[in-house]
Design a protein around this nucleic acid. Structure first.
Ligand code: FES
Ligand code: FES
Lengths: 151, 151
DNA sequence: TTTATACAGTACTAATTTAGTCCTATATCG
DNA sequence: CGATATAGGACTAAATTAGTACTGTATAAA
């Protein structure tokens, strides 16, 4: 249903907390207590974020996690990519598809264009943007223009 | 994984075929043969599209389906909406959410903004756009700007 | 060097969602 | 009436996601 996984949501909440309290390394236990996300889940998410390079991990006593970049450099797309892989709204939206009925298909390639548009949005929004306090959903100003093809 | 359901994909393929051959009513059998989508699945999809008002259905002998509007008026968002309901990329992205940890959450409301941005993209793309023959994915020109909050 | 701490990697089960099919009912035309 | 075609709902199977647990590795301090 065009929905992100819960793990991606957790990741964003965790990263936002880390961004807010950026002075020290954060252990999984601390993150769990601060966000009320169960510890095993926090661990799972942080391991994935670490492997993807979104956060930097230090092992051992006095260890923990820290953001690999500033909140302005971490995009929502990169968070999603870490947890779920590249965004692909349909099977046919990636370059490496092999749709069975491709020869007869009227919309061939167009999901790729839609996908690209959505990725552009997600790449334009950073963790810092996600930390802005919202008064109203409707107060956001987003402008999107669709110009079709250049040829 | 931010993916549309297959039924939504089928719906778009079916509607694109209908748009291309707009002169007559299309039975489920004809649509199935033209698109190579199994008949039970075609029926399921068309029933949903009919209920949502995307297509108009005529019962009985000489019956079938036709587009309720021109391809330029049918948006991708409306197709998705018919099959999957309103787009909500996370539980917290709709106005009517009641997130357990909302009081402590650093990103409260921001998924709603991201969701709105994606919906804007999907509302800007029509069935007619989806029927343009694509040479290269990269040839599409989409411009998105994120301007954050107005206040 | 031993011990406590904290992350890494992997495997597994349960829960949820989606896909696909089928059956019965209703409407329309000739 | 009988053939055609959609409407609605129920049901099963498949796929995906969420959540948990266990074992391994690295680090720092006693
Ligand atoms: S749906 Fe795959 S090529 Fe059209
Ligand atoms: S995730 Fe629900 S309010 Fe933040």
């Amino acid at each position: 249903m065009l929905r992100l996984s819960k793990l991606t949501d957790y990741a964003t909440v965790l990263l936002a907390y880390m961004a807010k309290t950026n002075s020290h390394l954060h252990t999984a236990v601390e993150l769990s207590e601060a966000t009320a996300i169960h510890l095993p889940t926090v661990s799972k998410v942080m391991k994935v974020l670490s492997k993807a390079g979104v956060v930097y991990a230090t092992r051992g006593s006095k260890g923990g996690y820290q953001l690999a970049q500033g909140p302005e450099q971490i995009t929502v797309a990169s968070i999603i990519g870490a947890l779920e892989g590249p965004v692909a709204i349909t099977e046919c939206s990636s370059q490496t598809h092999d749709c069975e009925q491709a020869s007869a298909c009227e919309i061939k390639g167009n999901w790729g264009v839609v996908n690209r548009a959505i990725v552009n949005v997600l790449e334009s929004i950073t963790l810092a943007d996600m930390m802005v306090t919202q008064q109203e959903y409707s107060s956001a100003e987003i402008q999107v223009s669709w110009q079709g093809l250049s040829r």
